[in-house]
Design a protein around this nucleic acid. Structure first.
Length: 607
RNA sequence: GCCCUGGUAGUGUAGCGGCCUAUCAUGAAGCCCUGUCGAGGCUUCGACACGGAUUCAAAUUCCGUCCAGGGCGCCA
């Protein structure tokens, strides 16, 4: 290798060294006689100087100038030179290599660069091109320092995780990418089989079943940096393919798994920031999270907690509340204290929040303001003075405070309230930056009942160990989420290790024996061959990186993400494939605009 | 499937019925310049997403389409 140093490496201690640097021309400044080039690579930027007056003997200035004249932005060059001091007073304190420069004594153009579609300099933050342009030219976008830092950060984080888990006896084991499609859960990406026409593999939504098999296989502690695939619509924190740090442990209880994760996070923290992370993480029960913050992954870095008013208003002659309470609904309030909201939330803002509340599924939004020691609003006339006083007391309302009151069915009302709480906090600037608060959300139910169909759905997934008898009124699940700043990083649980219990849960979820056998037969059978008690957790690598780096979207910590519509602008996938490929797989597409189905008709009943 | 926001030179923007032959910056091309560092100076080039409608007049208003982002649904 000719290169002697990277572009982020040279310091004052290297003065006089003969070096060869190779990299990209970021900026160049031609002063007529002397010319400066910012030579960049992923390690940094070094200023290299063409100074024809100051060349050592034997250097042909004319020849060098001819080469350097061919350099353009972002072309790839190799320069030989001598590390020297900068002229006094021209050092650049912002750049770690800013004390020195390299006098060019030899130069070579390694490759040209077409005119870049956007500028790659780092000072242009805030004026990034549209994301589709960035994604189309991702290899250029990734040259930006900010993106390089994200990739370095992510690589470090994953490396630290591997180190910690290896130190704790975990085996890194790969599980199949081509697997079986299951009817539960997210939509699968499916892959046609050529050998068995008409059958399909599915890409894994998670390695869930395989990692449980590894426990039955006595591997005891498994982990994997696992790519997962879900064919659902994207969000800023959801991509069609994403990466999870997946792990599973045998002979453990929930605390063992949580302790291991806390140790892992603390190790990563120390490695990334050189600081101790406070463990253990606090816990909050699902019900409390919902009733206090209106979310199962609440951001608890700011207050604005809901206070239950159901009891307080149960005798109020206010029809709307009466109807709601008669249907087992709840009433709860949130107090915007005068010092944080006082002047900032006026009558117009209240109307805005009422409109927002309706948008997020709340029937409406009741408000009261504490003025001259009395609660005032358009509806106080429906409440007796005693009830108003009680509301005031329960909510801790003081002069100038504004109360928002939500009412309706338990789940949808608290969920809507959670959206409202978040919106208010953002509007009022209550969300702190650069504060990271991990916590466990636990004590979850095993099932949720669909309010429309009355059907049981698994709260997490059907392999979670129920904590009590399935016929009890309330069944808890041995599962928990790891949350950070209002985001779910991942969820873990103890798993069912008893075949009969697993079948019972499937039954509860409405699967009959035939369907269980067809879709999960091998899995249930596996449990019958000495499955140890086991459990595990998976956390989203993309999400944790995005949160820790303050990125709006996980796309900013993924080298080659898809856009909102699951398209890769870089390679144009998904794309059509040649007809002969489809023919080999015995597949016809119904999406073609000129498809002639006549020769296939009467073989199927569809359409 | 639905809702919201947006689409102006390569890039980022201003303009939001006539002051538009469309602003500014950056970029690109050319010239000048020996200490800059997003160098600087001068000259030139380059755009209203597409299709309809309203109007004497549309970048601007309306309708439709496409594209992008955010959200709902969905994500066991």
């Amino acid at each position: 290798m000719r290169r002697t140093n990277t572009c982020g490496e040279l310091r004052i201690s290297d003065l006089g060294k003969k070096v060869c640097l190779q990299g990209w021309v970021r900026f160049s400044r031609d002063h007529g006689g002397v010319q400066f080039i910012d030579l960049a690579d992923r390690y940094g930027i070094t200023q290299v100087v063409f100074d024809p007056q100051d060349l050592p003997e034997g250097c042909d200035a004319k020849q060098l100038a001819d080469v350097i004249n061919t350099f353009t932005r972002e072309c790839v060059i190799s320069i030989d030179g001598i590390v020297r001091n900068r002229v006094e007073g021209t050092e650049d304190a912002r750049n770690p290599t800013g004390q020195i420069e390299v006098l060019i004594t030899g130069a070579e153009l390694l490759n040209t660069c077409a005119i870049p579609p956007f500028e790659i300099g780092d000072q242009k933050e805030g004026v990034l091109p549209n994301e589709d342009t960035r994604l189309k030219y991702r290899y250029l976008d990734l040259r930006r320092t900010e993106m390089i830092q994200a990739m370095v950060f992510r690589s470090k984080l994953v490396h630290l995780a591997r180190q910690y888990l290896e130190q704790n006896g975990f085996l890194e084991i790969e599980t199949p990418i081509l697997g079986r499609s299951t009817p539960e859960g997210a939509r699968d990406y499916i892959v046609p089989s050529r050998v068995h026409p008409g059958t399909f593999y599915a890409l894994p939504q998670s390695p869930q079943q395989f990692k449980q098999m590894l426990m039955v296989a006595s591997m005891d502690r498994y982990y994997q940096v696992a790519r997962c695939f879900r064919d659902e619509d994207s969000r800023k924190d959801r991509q069609p393919e994403f990466t999870q740090l997946d792990l599973e442990m045998s002979f453990v209880d929930m605390k063992d798994i949580q302790d291991m994760m806390e140790g892992l996070m603390a190790y990563i923290w120390k490695g990334l920031y050189g600081q101790e992370l406070k463990t253990p993480f606090p816990h909050i029960a699902y019900r409390d999270a919902m009733e206090r913050f209106g979310s199962d992954k609440p951001d608890m870095r700011y207050g604005l907690e809901f206070v239950k008013l159901t009891e307080v208003v149960k005798d109020a002659p206010y029809k709307i509340f009466q109807n709601i309470l008669a249907n087992n609904g709840i009433v709860a309030g949130i107090n915007l204290k005068a010092d944080i909201a006082g002047d900032k939330v006026g009558r117009n803002d209240v109307d805005r929040y009422i409109a927002y509340a309706k948008k997020v599924g709340l029937g409406g939004l009741t408000w009261m303001r504490c003025v001259n020691g009395q609660l005032e609003s358009n509806i106080v006339k429906y409440f007796t003075p005693e009830i108003l006083e009680n509301i005031k007391k329960t909510m801790g309302a003081e002069e100038g405070d504004l109360l928002f009151i939500i009412a309706g069915p338990w789940k949808s009302t608290y969920e809507g309230g959670g959206f409202l709480r978040k919106k208010i906090a953002e509007d009022l600037g209550l969300v702190p930056e650069n504060e990271f608060q991990f916590f466990w959300m636990d004590q979850c139910p095993m099932f949720e009942i669909d309010p429309v169909s009355g059907k049981y759905d698994a709260f997490h997934h059907p392999f979670v160990l129920p904590e009590n008898d399935l016929d009890d009124d309330y069944v808890g699940g041995a599962c928990f989420d790891l949350c950070l700043n209002g985001n779910e990083l991942g969820s873990g649980s103890l798993r069912i290790h008893n075949a009969q219990k697993q079948i019972e849960v499937f039954h509860k979820l409405g699967l009959d024996d035939e369907r269980i056998e067809r879709n999960f037969g091998y899995f249930v059978e596996m449990l019958s061959y000495g499955a140890p008690p086991h459990g595990g957790i998976a956390i989203g690598i993309d999400r944790i990186c995005a949160i820790l780096l303050n990125k709006d979207s996980i796309r900013d910590v993924i080298a080659f993400p898809k856009n909102k519509r699951a398209v890769s602008l870089l390679d144009g996938s998904p794309s059509k494939v040649d007809d002969d490929k489809l023919e080999e797989l015995q597949i016809i597409s119904l999406a073609g605009e000129d498809l002639d189905l006549s020769e296939y008709e009467d073989s199927g009943s569809e359409e």
